[in-house]
C-alpha cells in the first residue's frame, strides 16, 4: 500500500529547519530537479544549488526554500534533506541577495587573475536562487508588486 504523505525533514548543520507532512516535494538534485511523490523508490542523491518546493497536506499551497548543496535521502514515506544552508522564502533578505549578486557579477566580470572563479560562480548561483525564491514570497504577499 502506498503511503499518503511524505514526511519532509530539512536539517542544516546548525539547526533543524523543517519537519512537515507533504504530498509532493521537488528537490534540486545535482543533475537536475527531482519530483518526489509518496511511495517513491528509496534514493540517495547529492543536491546542487536550487529551489526546493513542496505541497503540504492541504494540497494547493506550496512553500519554497533556497537550498545550497547537500544530500537528500528519499524513502517511500520520508524525505530527509541535509543542506549546507537552507532558507525559507520569507526569511530571505532580498536586498542582501541583490547586493551579493551585484558583487558576484562584478567579480566575474573583472580581469583580476586573483579572482577565485569557482567561488564567485557559486556565489552568483546562490544569489540568483535566493532572489528567485525570495521574489516568490513577495509576489504572493503583495499582488502586483
Amino acid at each position: 500500500m502506498l503511503p499518503e504523505a511524505i514526511e519532509l525533514v530539512i536539517v542544516t548543520p546548525e539547526r533543524q529547519l523543517l519537519r512537515e507532512k507533504a504530498v509532493e516535494v521537488q528537490l534540486p538534485g545535482e543533475g537536475g530537479y527531482l519530483g518526489v511523490l509518496p511511495g517513491h523508490a528509496p534514493l540517495i542523491t547529492e543536491l546542487g544549488i536550487g529551489e526546493l518546493s513542496y505541497h503540504d497536506l492541504g494540497g494547493k499551497e506550496s512553500a519554497h526554500l533556497a537550498i545550497v548543496r547537500g544530500f537528500a535521502e528519499v524513502l517511500s514515506d520520508r524525505v530527509t534533506v541535509l543542506a549546507e544552508t537552507a532558507e525559507r522564502a520569507e526569511e530571505i533578505d532580498l536586498q542582501r541577495a541583490k547586493d551579493a549578486l551585484a558583487r558576484a557579477e562584478q567579480r566575474l566580470a573583472s580581469s583580476d587573475p586573483n579572482i577565485d572563479w569557482d567561488r564567485a560562480n557559486i556565489a552568483l548561483q546562490r544569489a540568483l536562487i535566493r532572489i528567485q525564491v525570495g521574489t516568490k514570497k513577495r509576489s504572493a504577499l503583495v499582488p502586483g508588486a
Binding site: P42, L43, I44, T45, E46, E73
Partner: peptide, 10 residues
Amino acid sequence: YIYEQPEEQL
C-alpha cells in the same frame, strides 16, 4: 537505495 551518483562519489 537507488544512487543518483556513483556510491564512491557520494
